[in-house]
Design a binder for these strands. Structure first.
Length: 289
DNA sequence: GATCCGTGGAC
DNA sequence: TGTCCAAGGAT
């Protein structure tokens, strides 16, 4: 079982790591939590402008907690999965109400926050508070699968296994461990990518188990490709667009116009109401005040 | 564990 | 052009 050449990895990061705004010295825990939630299943490049605008409008959890859900949904824009915006506001409420307005340090407490799961809790503990905890995202899983196990893909995630695997790779020194996690994520994002890994530019190539094995194809189960066209997800997006891009309210007829299949349209609409992304008053549908 | 939940860029 | 996939979380 190969390990990871940490010095080579850290040196590479110093050279080509992106100067993302939330990596600047002095970035607070709330700002880091915000960017981590926004980055869930969303390319980092799309997050940056929204992150800036968001913090300008609501600098901290107290301001966000006082905001109207409608404004929060609008500010979320087209980042996708808008339920995250509602969870973020709920998270701000919990931070204010039960943590005195400060983002908690402990992973277990972070996990209690709405919209904060296994990855985000550890990302905040590590990146915001400098704790030596494994941080496992899709990039880390992929780099470890290749560099350590010699497999082309990570296979299905398993929180327990993945955490244990990364824990064994984590440098003992706290600051090194933090730098390791940032760098290995960046490597997965920039070099050891899912589609066409740029092994020629990889600082781990000479020690990589996958490269050593001749970059064998993945022989595990093919990951199910997520369809989008024609799904409820697409319909929800179209429906929400009507309110998000307009003045926040619309009659039923305006919503009906965006999707012909009444059964699916109603199902999507009901799910939006259930999620609290819309409210209904008679014939009118609105973003939640 | 499987499924659902947006959006858009890269190839 | 259609496929793939992106700093996951909740149920």
């Amino acid at each position: 079982m190969t390990s990871v050449d940490t010095p080579a990895l850290l040196s590479w990061f110093e050279r080509v790591g992106r100067p993302l705004p939330w990596r600047a010295q002095g970035t607070g825990a709330w700002e880091i939590l915000l960017c981590e939630v926004m980055s869930q299943q969303t390319p980092v490049a799309r997050v940056e402008p929204v992150w800036r605008a968001w913090l300008e409008r609501w600098p901290g959890p107290a301001e966000l907690a006082a905001a109207a859900p409608a404004d929060v949904i609008r500010m979320w824009g087209k980042l996708g999965y808008p339920r995250r915006a509602l969870r973020l506001r709920e998270c701000a409420l919990v931070v204010v109400d039960t943590h005195g307005g400060r983002v908690p340090h402990d992973v277990d407490e972070l996990l209690e926050l709405p919209g904060v799961g296994d990855y985000t809790a550890r990302a905040v503990a590590c990146f915001a508070y400098g704790q030596r905890v494994p941080v496992v995202d899709t990039n880390v899983r992929r780099v470890v699968a290749r560099a350590v196990r010699g497999e082309a893909e990570a296979g299905p995630p398993s929180a327990r296994r993945d955490l244990a695997a990364v824990e064994t790779l984590l440098p003992p020194d706290r600051e090194q461990a933090v730098a390791f996690s940032i760098a290995i994520m960046e490597l997965g994002a920039l070099v050891c990518t899912a589609r066409s890994p740029r092994c020629d530019d990889c600082p781990l190539a000479s020690s990589c188990a996958w490269v050593a094995a001749g970059r064998p194809d993945w022989d595990g189960p093919r990951r199910r490709v997520q369809t989008f066209a024609g799904t409820d997800r697409q319909v929800r997006g179209l429906l929400l667009d009507v309110l998000r891009d307009g003045d926040g309210t619309a009659p039923r007829a305006a919503l009906n116009a965006v999707w012909p299949d009444a059964v699916q349209r109603d199902r999507a609409l009901d799910s939006l109401l259930a999620d609290g992304l819309m409210v209904r008053a008679g014939d009118r549908y609105s973003l939640p005040a």
